[in-house]
């Protein structure tokens, strides 16, 4: 019995180790992901994003409780930023969720954003998938709502909840940054603070003017997560959104779209890697690069030259297939 079987049998350590494989981007990732292909869509994905301090973790903590009260199981991926200076990170979201530490129906995993290789979104997405494959009914993905990459992660979610709080400039920033575009549900947390009514009114107006879907009106829910106010309503809205997605066939369509876009992403990344790799030792390619660098040729003409060079393309193809062979051997072993 291997680690994936163990995970399917409910072994928490095996599940944790599988998540480490994703976290560390080890070569076993493709193999692992192919093993859970059939099970990864069993559960439902909920994304929570919003600025630091908006109370996301507390909201997620109460959402876990809500889901558990319905006798359902939940996985959580809590993402915190990696320091660009040291590569380290402080993953503090567990503090808010420690009441569930001993609940076998809850599995919480903290994740750092790590490098910028584009591997971030994949590791996080795959972590969520494995959590669902392990039998969780829901998987919550919590991110710091800054930057395109994290918006991208939340986009994996079937329902995306954007968390705002009154009386800060963050909300306006969020609107400007386009974060509202990804919201299926907007939560105004800390709704006992002044400015709540105004913020809700502004949001309603904005949503009214920019309705994205005919089949879903984005609701605004006021919560006070620390007092457990509004949590039930939020969960009901998520369920409502889930039903609408199912009824309209949007859920299936969304998953299809996600699969293809991930596939394309992988293709793109690999081709890019092969090409980048070749600039180290392919003399012909290097010469073109040097000419571009010196300004002797414009980038458009240079690109035309590259794609007209059959030998260069052939060498790239060879590189690609040798990589495939190496990887095949590794996986077989």
């Amino acid at each position: 019995m291997d680690i994936v079987d163990k995970m399917f049998q409910g072994d928490r350590l095996a599940l944790a180790r599988l998540l480490s494989i994703l976290e560390n981007n080890t070569p076993e990732v493709p193999l692992v992901m192919s093993r859970i292909q059939q099970n990864q869509d069993n559960g439902y994905y909920i994304g929570f994003t919003g600025a630091p301090g908006s109370g996301k973790s507390t909201l997620v903590d109460k959402m876990i409780l809500q889901i558990r009260n319905n006798n359902l199981e939940v996985g959580v991926v809590a993402i915190d930023p990696t320091s660009p200076f040291s590569g380290g990170a402080i993953l503090g979201d567990r503090i808010r969720m420690q009441n569930h530490a001993l609940d076998p129906g809850v599995f919480i995993r903290s994740l750092a954003t790590r490098g910028s290789l584009g591997g971030l979104s994949r590791a996080a997405k795959n972590t969520a998938r494995i959590l669902n494959a392990s039998g969780k009914d829901y998987c919550i993905i919590e991110t710091v709502g800054v930057g395109q990459v994290e918006i991208d992660i939340v986009d994996t979610a079937d329902t995306t909840v954007v968390v705002l709080m009154p009386d800060t400039g963050d909300s306006i920033q969020a609107i400007k940054a386009g974060i509202m575009e990804i919201a299926d549900i907007i939560v105004v947390n800390k709704a006992d603070l002044k400015g709540t009514d105004q913020l809700i009114a502004d949001l309603m107006l904005m949503l009214h003017e920019n309705q994205r879907h005919s089949w879903w009106q984005v609701p605004v829910i006021a919560t006070q997560a620390d007092k457990n106010i509004g949590i039930k309503e939020l969960f009901e809205k998520i369920e409502e959104h889930k039903e609408v997605l199912k009824d309209t066939g949007m859920l299936v369509a969304k998953r299809k779209e996600q699969r293809v876009s991930e596939f394309m992403e992988i293709i793109e990344q690999t081709l890019l890697d092969v090409i980048l790799e070749s600039q180290k030792d392919d003399s012909e390619f290097c010469e073109i690069i040097n000419n571009v660098m010196a300004g002797l040729i414009d980038p458009y003409s240079a690109a035309k030259k590259v794609f007209g060079n059959e030998n260069l393309i052939k060498r790239w193809m060879m590189r690609l297939s040798s990589e495939i062979l190496i990887e095949r051997r590794r996986v077989d072993a």
Partner: peptide, 8 residues
């Protein structure tokens, strides 16, 4: 597989 390996 190959793509992942390179990316990682």
């Amino acid at each position: 597989s190959s793509l992942k390996a390179i990316a990682y």
